[in-house]
């Protein structure tokens, strides 16, 4: 069974210590919800997990193997949803989703069908041929979420995925997360909104802040 762990992580941003001595563990089928006040390092931790940031100290491992040993393999097993939706204004919704799905080696056998299914999941099938520039913020976010469904990857790193989403889309997302977990996937989620996930464990980043030095 897959396990993603981090131990004794230290994150420094602009000479400020964001968190220190942080450990986490997610197993296949698990969900880790990151909570904490603004600036407590939820996004930083997710970017650390994606290796967009490097920890100042500590290490992360996938099934006991250090993730920095093989960066491409780590990239192949994760999906990251950040603050920006990466929807190209001149490409249609389907083209946007299909491009990202096509970049992955473990993509579905039929990217066309996988894209259609992903758009269906988030209720944007009718927008498939619309260029990205005509989409609303919520629709762009749905396209971004459809991207992660269109090609399978075991680890989802979602940074405030519910931003700009309506109730119906949040329900679709919860359904997608639950299905992902049931299929043995893992989810790490930073959020302020209440999102239902199966058997979540909660990591409060407020606990790892440095005591203010006097």
């Amino acid at each position: 069974m897959d396990r993603f762990t981090g131990s004794d992580l230290l994150c420094i941003r602009g000479e400020r210590m964001v968190f220190t001595g942080l450990d986490f563990e997610v197993a296949a089928g698990g969900a880790l919800i990151l909570v904490g006040p603004n600036g407590s390092g939820k996004s930083s931790l997710l970017r650390l997990m994606a290796r967009l940031l490097k920890p100042a100290a500590g290490a992360m491992a996938w099934n006991g193997e250090d993730v920095s040993d093989d960066p491409d393999a780590h990239n192949a097993r994760l999906h990251y949803v950040g603050h920006m939706d990466a929807v190209k204004p001149v490409l249609s919704v389907a083209e946007n989703v299909r491009f990202w799905a096509g970049l992955r080696p473990n993509g579905a056998a039929d990217p066309q069908a996988a894209t259609a299914r992903a758009l269906e999941t988030f209720g944007i099938s009718h927008l498939a041929d619309i260029p990205g520039r005509f989409l609303s913020a919520g629709q762009r976010r749905r396209v971004n979420l459809a991207r992660i469904i269109a090609s399978p990857a075991p680890l989802w790193l979602l940074d405030e995925p519910t931003t700009a989403l309506d109730k119906e889309a949040i329900a679709s997302l919860e359904g997608a997360i639950t299905r992902h977990q049931r299929g043995g996937g893992m989810v790490v989620l930073a959020t302020h909104a209440a999102i239902e996930a199966h058997a979540p464990s909660v990591l409060d980043l407020g606990d790892f802040e440095m005591a203010e030095a006097v």
Binding site: L52, N75, A76, G82, A86
Partner: peptide
């Protein structure tokens, strides 16, 4: 600007 570069860096292609 639109976040695509971040995702390109995170794609399995070197």
């Amino acid at each position: 600007d639109d976040g695509s570069l971040e995702l390109l860096v995170l794609s399995p292609v070197t």
